[in-house]
Amino acid sequence: MTITQLHYVLAVAEYQNFTKAAQKVFVTQPTLSMQIQKLEEELDIQIFDRSKKPIELTEVGKKIVYQAKNIVNESDRIKDIVDQQKGFIGGEFRLGIIPTVMPTLLPMFLKSFTKKYPKVKLKIEELHTEAIIEKLKDGHLDAAIAATPLEQENIKEWTLYYEPFVAYVPSNHQLYTKQKLTTEDLNIDDILLLEDGHCFKEGILNLCKTKKNYEESSFQLESGSFETLIKLSNEGMGMTLLPYLHTLELNDKEKGNLKMFEEPVPARSVSLIYHKSELKIQIIEALQQIIAGIIKGAIAFQNVKIISPINRN
């Protein structure tokens, strides 16, 4: 039994197809099939039921895949220990970022990070929180940047910054004349929200401690864009809430419609999250240091109240 064979088994288990799995691990399909067959013969069992379309794991195959993940993970850790001992910061690093953080935070740190750590090959994906958690647990991401706390047993969270919620209130809105808002001022049925799947939407629902009543609304919106929400708000369709960093990019006229909340300011905790195995921890630490150094100049809020990004329904 070899680590390479276990890698092949995990690839087939994921893609349920020998050809796709072979492409994933950069070998020919006959080579991959032969190695898996060798392993099955050595163990005297069938890992995959090849009669099914797509290919399925047998019952014993499911147990083998579970153990194979642990073995492959631990073998990766050996190389990780050596890299740390040598002080090496490099290699491929797969980073997931949620959509409401990606456009504002990534441009702030990417250039600085790649310049300081040129040997790190960053592979960045924009993903919703649910997909990030799944990929971290499956080993398909090394780390991610997401709103926390997520309350996941096998995932560690390293807070990068607290990002306040900021209200966008157009001049024709009843709250426009208020200097600062409280959560009691908010009417969830008057707030334009992002589509389902965005943790920022869940944060707003938790902030307002209620559900949006779409039945009484004249329209139902599903948008993944803050820009769309702002434009609709300007047209008198309601107010909206924005993450603080997003407000820095608004024009002067739009900034005139922003309203801060009274302290403690409702905010989300944005964290670097990673599996408890702490693989590639030296790169995770490097990312944290770069981002923390940059973000200090952009966000200086201290008295905040963290709003959970988790769907509480």
Rank of each mutant, 00 (worst) to 15 (best):
Q282L: 00
L186I: 09
L229S: 00
D190K: 10
I71Q: 06
M102W: 10
I284Y: 02
L150S: 03
A22P: 06
F93G: 00
G197I: 08
S308N: 06
L39G: 01
H275C: 05
Y66P: 01
N17Q: 11
V166H: 07
H198K: 13
E134K: 15
K119R: 14
D189G: 06
E285L: 14
A13K: 07
I89V: 14
A13C: 10
N70C: 04
K259N: 05
E215R: 04
E215N: 11
K137E: 15
I299L: 14
T4N: 15
V9F: 00
I307K: 07
I306F: 11
D185Y: 10
M1A: 12
N313R: 08
E278D: 13
V25G: 09
K20T: 15
A167R: 02
F165N: 01
D49C: 03
A131K: 13
E56Y: 03
M239S: 12
N251V: 11
D76F: 12
S269P: 09
G197K: 11
F200M: 05
A267M: 13
D196C: 12
I81K: 14
K280A: 04
I81V: 15
M34E: 04
L241E: 08
K212H: 03
K231G: 01
E263C: 07
N73F: 07
I295Y: 04
K255R: 15
I294M: 05
I230T: 05
S218G: 01
L194S: 04
E14I: 07
F165K: 05
K119P: 09
V72L: 07
G224L: 02
I81Q: 08
A146H: 04
E222Y: 06
V270K: 07
T177D: 14
L181K: 06
L106M: 15
K305G: 05
K276F: 04
Q16V: 10
K231T: 14
K253D: 15
Y15C: 01
Q46S: 12
I81N: 08
A68H: 06
K86P: 00
C208N: 05
D44Q: 10
L95F: 12
L241M: 01
N172M: 09
E195W: 03
P99Y: 08
T177W: 11
T228D: 14
I124C: 07
K180P: 02
L229Y: 01
T31C: 09
I97T: 03
I71D: 04
T2A: 03
T129C: 10
L205D: 00
I124F: 08
L272Q: 10
H140L: 13
E14G: 05
L205Q: 11
Q5P: 00
Y15F: 15
Q84C: 14
P266N: 03
H7W: 10
Q29D: 13
K79I: 07
P264W: 06
P266I: 11
I290C: 04
Q35W: 12
E202G: 02
L205C: 01
E262A: 06
F113Y: 08
E40G: 02
I78L: 14
E222V: 08
L279P: 07
K121I: 12
E41D: 15
G256S: 14
N234I: 06
I291D: 05
L127F: 13
T183P: 00
Q288K: 14
D49K: 06
E153F: 14
M237V: 02
G90C: 12
S271N: 04
K296V: 09
V270L: 10
F200N: 08
T104M: 07
